[in-house]
Design a protein around this nucleic acid. Structure first.
Lengths: 228, 228
DNA sequence: TCTTATATACTACCATGGTAGTATGGTAAT
DNA sequence: ATTACCATACTACCATGGTAGTATATAAGA
């Protein structure tokens, strides 16, 4: 029996989107454990839709490497691949460093204001120890920089890959993060953008995204069966 | 009536793959012009498969932004979006610059040999003016660098986006490229890797991938109806 | 006990019919 | 001539039954 949590189906969702979002949510939150065997039929009965939209959602998730489909054999939640995770981080680092350089050249006051507003909220969340909201604000912070440079494609690339990286973030407890350090980095990024100091912005962003390098081996030892 | 060229169906292809490859080939080569309206039924009859695999191929191509699906209205080959093309180039530039730096740190002799072998073939192709093969070799050259650094994910990101960029390359005649310059850049990249000179490799790669900036406005004026 | 054969219960893949929603062309009213 | 309406012909979306291929458990044979 699958340990799945069902999400609310929004009105404007197609069946396909509903299945996709449900599965993604459960996979990333590790409620569906890496290695789990699922089938079209099983999910279609669970979510009360036909097999066609389930199949289509499977294909999309397979492209994001959250599922592996073996024809005539079965479909499995992929194991976490540390090589893959590090490559994701590498890509994120270099795309965001290049983007923040662009931001130093040309960034609207409106966007800068959004960043400062966001940072203020982050400080409140740290005091309140509201780590879930902090995660969300952190995402928004980075999104504001990328979208402020009109780099929509970069964000969609990052988003698609992040699904994979986020499974590891879940394994670490929220309080394992050094949020004070992260916030001061955010602060430095803002001031570098305001000063149009490309080299500094690049360096801070580099350091900042290096924080995503986890104590991989210890995690792997602790949760051995979840890893490739 | 659609101006589609049918490709050979390989034995191990599923129907879905067959439809996907056929459509991709025709879209990138511009035999299916941007803006063309196609339907599940039409393609399924043309390629002699049912509507299900056609639909699944549509979804994949929609994710790559080669098709746009409007429910209950129709499916269309996307117009070429110059903003999107430039962003693709931007991503490629920064990922490959970061990768070639890695190559300078740690690259096998075997991979270096592959690069030199490839370059030798490129020179032959220039003499023979075999531009189709040259395109292919150019792809291989870059792939050798990326895969030599074990960056499989980076290559799949580049490949997926390149589909879009390549539609523009088709619009330019092959002999518009300054192949002599491109080959000398390849040569410089190899020697920089051999010398483990990261900064030089980075700089040459930057210059090299800036070559993909096209005379966009003139192209847009010439083929106005293909662009967004 | 171990190997081999076979029945059975799965799987994802594909074909096809029905459904709701959208575009379009013709007709009637103004 | 213009507008409003409606029938018709599309569309992609979804449901469902059938197919070939795979894994597994049981039984027959060595």
């Amino acid at each position: 029996m699958l340990n799945m949590v069902s999400i609310k189906r929004k009105n404007n969702y197609t069946s396909r989107d509903y299945v996709y979002e449900s599965l993604k949510e459960n996979i990333i939150s590790l409620k569906l454990k890496p290695g789990t065997n699922i089938s079209e039929k099983e999910i279609s009965e669970l979510l009360q839709v036909s097999r066609t939209p389930v199949r289509e959602a499977f294909l999309k998730l397979a492209q994001e490497e959250l599922l592996a489909i073996y024809p005539q054999r079965g479909t499995f939640v992929t194991l976490i691949d540390l090589q893959h995770v590090e490559e994701t981080r590498f890509i994120r680092e270099h795309l965001e460093r290049a983007t923040v350089r662009e931001a130093c050249k040309n960034f609207s006051n409106e966007s800068i204001f959004k960043l400062e507003e966001n940072l203020a909220l982050q400080k409140i969340c740290v005091e309140e120890k509201n780590y879930t909201k902090l995660f969300k604000l952190d995402e928004d912070f980075h999104y504001t920089i990328v979208s402020g440079c009109d780099k929509k494609l970069i964000w969609s690339v990052i988003q698609q890959m992040n699904n994979h990286l986020n499974r590891i973030r879940i394994l670490r407890l929220a309080d394992n993060f050094n949020w004070d350090l992260i916030l001061s980095q955010h602060e430095n990024i803002i001031s570098a953008i305001k000063d149009k100091n490309q080299d500094l912005a690049d360096r801070v962003m580099e350091e900042h995204l290096k924080e995503l390098i986890f104590e991989q081996e210890s995690l792997k030892k602790k949760y051995e069966n979840l890893f490739k």
